[in-house]
Amino acid sequence: MPLSVQETEVKNPPVSRPPLDPHLKALENEAIHIFREVAAEFEKPVMLYSIGKDSSVLLHLARKAFHPGRVPFPLLHVDTTWKFREMIEFRDEIAAKYDLDLVVHTNTRGAEEGITPFSHGSALYTDIMKTEALRQALDAGGYDAAFGGARRDEEASRAKERIYSFRTPDHKWDPRNQRPELWNIYNGMIKKGESVRAFPLSNWTEVDIWRYIQAEDIPLVPLYYAAERPYVERDGMMILAEDPRLKLLPGETVQRGMIRFRTLGCFPLTGAIRSTASNLDEVIAELEIATVSERQGRAIDRDQSGSMEKKKREGYF
């Protein structure tokens, strides 16, 4: 006779919290369903972990989905070497705390060739250090499914993304030839070399993410909360000035002010916003009256019209 859950060795301890409101509960249930379905149908899944708030929610949902077991797949972080210092510290802490298999991949060829966001521009840099690096890592791991934290409300081209997003052996996405997705029945059948990107957070909005973080008490990189930090203004963005690789251009000075970040990526390409929201409640209050979208701080989206769609076709997450 099987023993009860309390009697088993549990590495994923349950916590007591007030019940979620029905809206967040419905989103959570849907995400857990997707996690379990992918884990059951694919041979070698992996979870893309970008250390940001969406990834933090994704990881939390994965732990819930497989409780009382541990998360049955590795986390993959594509490290461009230009991430915020606090992100890397946070990543390593979380991996140790939750007993996760963490795979870190850097495009060493790009790094050796000296590809940086300063010297090569955001488009080429992103292509080599993020898109190409991701393809390398997925090929090296032989992964046939990769979870990502993308949401359909983020950007226009993502509104048509499926929950199981099919990719060719060279990681191409064809928006005009996507598999129909009816009900919550997902078609996980693929041929050798093909893969699927799975998006459990497809139907979440930015406000949902923050409210869920609050309700579930999910730890985040401190950069999401306002603090007095040094920054440089460049191309209309406020760039965090703490990394010695950031060289001041003529006329630039390091200023200090209360700032925070709405999304986290590579520090030279991620603009801060002025804010006094230094805790979760204040961030949510600020967000609910916000009049600009969260990707506004992302340099890569604005390179050209339809730029996200182009990057996605090429294999960017």
């Binding site: 509960k25 191309d235 963005m237 009049t291 604005r302």
Partner: peptide, 27 residues
């Protein structure tokens, strides 16, 4: 890189609403 996105004309700006209450129904 293009200029920052703050180029919207005043006529098409939606105005801010007060903080929304927590929703207690399913979507």
């Amino acid at each position: 890189m293009t200029a920052p996105a703050q180029t919207a004309s005043a006529t098409i700006l939606p105005f801010a609403e007060p903080v929304k209450a927590a929703r207690d129904t399913r979507p």
